[in-house]
Every structure is written in structure tokens, then in C-alpha cells.
């Protein structure tokens, strides 16, 4: 394979019990790229991310990250290696303060440099001692991304980051993603088309568990050609 991909997924099949939900999915991402997955609800986008992150176990296929095979690895080890999954449920540890949430991120990665987080999300600085349960949806998303940033991950898998957030925060996240992509490859599942068109280097369109289109061409991306798959 090695064409400089940081993450390469080949022929991934997955099922929930009897029901097959992913069919021969291929996905590539190079360092510094932003790749988005679009598709309707139930197309298998979240399942794809969870399989890559090791939370679900695929039935067949290969996942190579940084030249290492991820199949069969525990998900916390995958996260430790620098491939982190940020789920869409926006469930921060609500009983813990923002500081404690970040401490846990640091504990896992031994990276105590919080400036990199607060540079992206200055808002978190003022909220340090507040219980995360009292944060707004946008602040929670900032915290979720923020605590995943510790340990300089190489790939972030972000599931519907802007779902249910105010337009101002979406705009802020857009800029953050652009900034982030300089250091970290991003795989983002997203339904917000303008955002997708603005940040993507490559778009995968999914339908019924298959990747039905791969849009690499910058012009097509800008033109919003992926709209037909939503």
C-alpha cells in the first residue's frame, strides 16, 4: 500500500449480529488531510468510525494506521497510539469538572500541555472549575475535542461535531478544524453541507453500508456535488 497514507482501510465488513451493516469499505487519509463522510442516517458512517476506533470489531478487512494493523487491538491502545474517536453524543463526564476532564485526557497520554487546547478553545479557560454537566452543547463539544487533542493525535475521527450547535459555534469549529488539519488528519462524519464543502480535501459518500462515491477533485467539492447523497 504505502502511498503515504496515515490511515488506510481496506475491504472492511462489519455486522451487528446477523445484520450486515458495512460492505467492503475502503478509506484512505494522508497526513494533513480533512476527509469527510456524508450520507443519510443509517448509512453506516458512525459504524465505520467505531470499527476503525476498535470499539466495534469488524468481521473482515484490514485497518492500517501508521503502518500498524489495528485489527484485534483494544480501543484504548488504538487511542493511545494517536487515533482518537470523538463520539457524537456529546457526553462529557458531567460529574467531573472541566479541569478533571482534561486531566483524564492528560493521564492517558502523559501530555500535560493544555495550552494547545486553550489556544483553540479559549472559552474553556474560564470554565475550568465548572462541572462539565453544566456546560452548553457547544462548550461540551469543545471539551470533547479539547481533551482528545492531548497527546498530539495523528488522526481524529469526529462524529457529527456540529449537530445541534448554534451557527456561531459551527463557524468557530470550522476554523478550528482548518487549523487542526495542519497537524492532524481529520475524518469527520457530517451532515452540514456548507461545512463539508468548505473544509474537505476528500469526501466519501456512503449509502446502505457501502461507500458509493469518493470525491477528490477540489472543484467538485466546492460545487457541493455530494449533495445528491444526503
Amino acid at each position: 500500500m504505502n502511498n503515504g497514507e496515515i490511515l488506510a482501510v481496506r475491504g472492511l465488513n462489519a455486522s451487528y449480529g446477523e445484520a450486515k451493516v458495512l460492505f467492503d469499505c475502503d478509506l484512505d487519509i494522508q497526513p494533513g488531510q480533512v476527509v469527510t463522510c456524508v450520507g443519510r442516517n443509517g448509512a453506516g458512517k458512525t459504524t465505520l468510525l467505531k470499527n476503525i476506533a476498535g470499539i466495534l470489531k469488524p468481521t473482515s478487512g484490514s485497518i492500517t494506521f501508521n503502518d500498524r494493523n489495528l485489527i484485534g487491538m483494544m480501543s484504548y491502545n488504538i487511542a493511545k497510539m494517536g487515533l482518537k474517536y470523538i463520539p457524537q453524543d456529546k457526553k462529557v463526564f458531567s460529574d467531573l469538572t472541566v479541569r478533571e476532564n482534561l486531566e483524564l485526557g492528560s493521564y492517558a497520554t502523559k501530555d500535560y500541555n493544555w495550552d494547545q487546547v486553550t489556544d483553540y478553545f479559549p472559552r474553556l479557560k474560564q470554565l475550568m472549575d465548572r462541572k462539565a454537566g453544566y456546560l452548553s452543547g457547544g462548550e461540551r463539544q469543545m471539551l470533547m475535542i479539547g481533551r482528545a487533542l492531548l497527546g498530539a493525535p495523528k488522526v481524529l475521527l469526529i462524529d457529527e461535531p456540529t449537530e445541534g450547535l448554534a451557527p456561531g459555534i459551527v463557524e468557530h469549529l470550522k476554523n478550528v478544524f482548518k487549523e487542526l488539519s495542519k497537524k492532524t488528519a481529520l475524518v469527520i462524519v457530517e451532515q452540514n453541507l456548507p461545512l463539508v464543502c468548505a473544509i474537505s480535501d476528500k469526501i466519501y459518500a456512503m449509502k446502505e453500508g457501502r461507500i458509493v462515491a469518493e470525491i477528490k477533485d477540489g472543484e467538485s467539492i466546492k460545487a457541493g456535488i455530494c449533495e445528491q447523497y444526503l
Binding site: I55, M74, Y76, N77, A79, K84, L104, Y107, R147, A148
Partner: peptide, 8 residues
């Protein structure tokens, strides 16, 4: 989520 942060 704890596991997702990389904690065993």
C-alpha cells in the same frame, strides 16, 4: 469515553 481517551 474513558476508553476512547486511551485509558486502559
Amino acid at each position: 469515553h474513558v476508553e476512547g481517551l486511551g485509558i486502559n
